[in-house]
Design a protein around this nucleic acid. Sequence first.
RNA 1: GGCGGGGUAGCUCAGUUGGUGAGAGCGCCGGAUUCAUAACCCGGAGGUCGGCAGUUCAAAUCUGCCCCCCGCUACCA
Length: 572
Amino acid sequence: MARILITSALPYINGIKHLGNLVGSMLPSDVYARFQRQRGHDVLFLCATDEHGTPAELAARSAGQTVRDYCAEQHDIQAKAGKAFGLSFDHFGRSSNAPNHQLTQHFAKVLEDNGLIEERVEKQVYSVDDQRFLPDRYVEGECPNCGYEKARGDQCDNCGRLLDPTDLKNPYSAISGSKNVELRETRHLYLLQAQLQDEIAEWVEAHPGWPQLTKSIAKKWLKEGLRDRSITRDLQWGIPVAYEGEKRAGFENKVFYVWFDAPIEYIGVTQEWALANDDVSDTEWKRWWRTDKGAEDIRYVQVMGKDNVAFHTVSFPATILGSREPWKTVDTLKSLNWLTWYGGKFSTSENRGIFMDQALELLPPDNWRWHLMANAPESDDASFTLEHFALVVNKDLADVLGNFVNRITRFCKARFGEEVPAAGEYGEDERGLIATLQKSVSAYTEYMEQMEFRKAFAELRGIWVAGNEYLQVAAPWTTIKTDEAKAAASVRCALNLIVLFAVLSRPVIPFTAEKMFAIFGLNDAEAGWPDDIAAALNRFKGGEAFIPPDVLFAKIEDEQIEEWRQKFGAED
RNA sequence: GGCGGGGUAGCUCAGUUGGUGAGAGCGCCGGAUUCAUAACCCGGAGGUCGGCAGUUCAAAUCUGCCCCCCGCUACCA
């Protein structure tokens, strides 16, 4: 039994996440965590809301709330939505909680002790009316290159020119529109990443198994050369620059930059998890993170969208390695591309796309889980359309899987009654089926191990199809006329298949798997993972009672699709 | 602009140490079947593998140039 630590990239706090965010990290990590738990491994699966930074402050302001209340409320909303989607986090924490505060202070301290942090003074745009320094993209003005009037301080959206906020003509605050802005000096802490260049490059090289996308992004940053990075910001909401409660002189109104503290929350949430389980000793969480305290054999898996890769392959490792302390670093890093909404971006402000809460108002979680994972954006950005979604759900879930369960349970009830028939022996058809499944289950398992989700679920779908093929050939509705024992054996085999399908499908469609187990009065928590298909198909010997279920998946009708298209801003 | 990813059947996508007639699912057409959610099962049609040029006995695969889409570009996260 291996010990596997799995973390999903942390969803940002400013509102409920859309389907693209879901499939970008939280859902694939959940599927993998569920799979590894069923495999019998000791899994710790963690996630948290990422709560600091300018967008949180602004979102709170526009909601008319204090940022503290806003975050608390939004955390609750995201936690509920995640639970409703079946995300099986062992703990869903908050980057604003105490453990992360302590850890972030700790890392800043040891990095400074190691000579990797220094103070630097720089000039930055300050908005007098907003009483705050403005991050580059919150300064707007006229582009010096093309004259576009709403160019952002980091880049002009019109001509694409990269800018410095001081380049802008007639700059104004994007927050309030105020033109009362000026350059002010401000003091920040810099993490001297350049000194860690070789060390991080070596660490990256030591992980040849990372996906192509992950490696190329990491190597690109290293090739360009790591730059020292400012790790503090002029904000109120965040982790104060104050070691052990002692505020640092000149940093009274500053906090650590959200990208400095957010990855540290992976460790913080592990402490939160331990505390939630009444372990205050510090020993339990360290078993997952400190290689000198029992974490030397941990396999650590991170899952994230491609925008997060640089921070996980370069920035966070700089923090960890620079501490000179024996922290566990990531072993396997799965990165995904974007899911697009009809080829364009999901957008809250323009009401384009479906968000997690809305999705569940339309259909149960497994419909979404299946489609998103079977079509996960692994090799490239993938397009989500309602039409494709309906097609996939109707075909894979309703016609192939749902119908299989329905047809055999109904047939059995009609001809043999509501218990597994005991007569007859397995013959050629069953041996053929077992041989087929032995291969495809093995392939499916391997794809899941590799986190090749599209391939895995194409294989799983093939396994469901094999059930229908088997029934077609065995045709108990025909054989029962001449050989009732043979028909009984076929039905018994098919009923056993339902349980096998439930076990194999559980990582991706857990709610449906539970229903399938319930047909036979089984508890899905007992699900393991089948190595021996013949044994799995001999689980029921005959005589076991069952209750034919309602239809597992209703079909999506064209009228529904049209209605949703209108509601969610679908285009062509 | 720079860097990275991608452009393969109507749709969504597999497919690189270059080599048996280019694949899957869906959709479409046909057949078979009737246990089942007009479901399942079998078969078929359908592609100048973004464009041009080159290397090679042989290119979806390697090289060069070009076109298009997406992402990142360190103070959005």
